[in-house]
Simulated assay, not measured.
Amino acid sequence: MVRAITLLLAGLMWLAPVQAERIAPAPGDDWQRASRKGDNSVWTREVPGTAVKEVKLEAVIDAPVEQVWRTIAEIEAYPDFMPYIDAIEVVGSDEDGELVYHRVSPPLVSKRDYTLLIVNEEDPEQGQYYRYWTPRNEQGPEPRSGVVRLEICDGSWALSRREDGRTQATYWVYTDPGGSIPAWLANRANTVGLYDILKAVERRAQDLSWQQEGND
Rank of each mutant, 00 (worst) to 15 (best):
A4W: 08
L12W: 09
W14T: 06
P17S: 05
A20E: 10
E21V: 13
S35T: 15
S41T: 11
S41V: 00
V47C: 12
G49I: 05
K56D: 01
L57N: 03
I61Q: 09
D62S: 06
P64I: 14
V65E: 09
R70P: 03
R70M: 13
R70Y: 04
A73F: 09
I75C: 04
P79A: 01
G97I: 01
H102C: 12
R103N: 09
P107G: 12
S110N: 04
R112C: 05
Y114W: 15
N120I: 06
E122T: 14
Q126V: 05
G127S: 02
Y129Q: 03
Y129K: 02
R131V: 11
R131H: 01
Y132D: 10
Y132E: 03
E142S: 15
V147E: 02
I152N: 03
I152W: 05
G155S: 09
L159H: 06
S160Q: 14
R162C: 07
E163P: 10
T167K: 09
Y171N: 08
W172T: 02
Y174R: 09
G178C: 07
S180M: 06
V192Q: 15
D196V: 14
D196L: 13
R203H: 03
Q211H: 10
Q211T: 04
Q211N: 11
Q212K: 07
E213P: 00
